[in-house]
Computed example of a mutant assay.
Amino acid sequence: MQAEQMTGLVLAGGQGRRMGGRDKGLEMFADVPLIEHALHRLRPYVNEILINANRSHDEYSGRGARVVADIEGGYQGPLMGIWTGLTLARTPWVVVVPCDSPVLPDDLVPRLAAGLGNHDIAMAHDGERAHPVVALIRRSLVDDLGAALAEGERKIDRWYARHALCEVDFSDCPMGFANLNTEQDKARLERQWTQ
Rank of each mutant, 00 (worst) to 15 (best):
M80Y: 15
L39R: 00
N181T: 04
L34E: 14
A89E: 07
L9S: 03
G14L: 03
Y45R: 09
G14E: 02
A122W: 04
V134Q: 07
A161R: 11
R188Q: 12
G73A: 15
T194C: 05
G127R: 13
T87S: 05
F177C: 07
P44M: 02
A30V: 14
V67G: 00
A161V: 07
V134S: 05
L189H: 12
R111G: 09
V133C: 10
T91P: 04
L165G: 08
P174L: 04
G146W: 02
A89R: 04
A187Q: 14
V94P: 12
R63F: 06
E27R: 15
V109E: 03
R188H: 09
L141P: 12
L86M: 07
G16T: 06
S140I: 08
Y160E: 15
D169S: 08
R66T: 15
G152A: 06
R111V: 07
G176Q: 06
G25E: 02
A148F: 02
D58N: 01
R138K: 15
R17C: 08
L86H: 02
N179A: 07
F170A: 12
D58T: 09
R43Y: 09
I35G: 02
H131Q: 10
G74K: 09
N118E: 15
I71M: 11
D70I: 04
H37N: 09
R191A: 12
L42A: 04
M1D: 09
L86S: 03
I51S: 00
L26H: 01
A89D: 11
G117I: 06
L34G: 14
F29A: 05
L165M: 10
E4Q: 14
I35R: 00
A122M: 06
D120V: 05
L189P: 05
E48D: 15
L88E: 08
A12N: 02
D157P: 13
R154D: 12
G21N: 05
R41P: 00
L180K: 14
L79N: 00
V133D: 15
G25P: 12
D144G: 12
A12G: 07
P98V: 07
A114K: 09
E128C: 04
P105F: 13
V96E: 03
P33D: 12
L104Q: 01
G73L: 14
D70C: 04
E128V: 06
V96K: 08
Y45G: 06
A113R: 03
G81P: 13
E4C: 03
R111C: 07
A130F: 10
D185I: 05
L141N: 10
L39K: 06
G16D: 14
Y75S: 13
G62F: 12
E183R: 11
V109S: 04
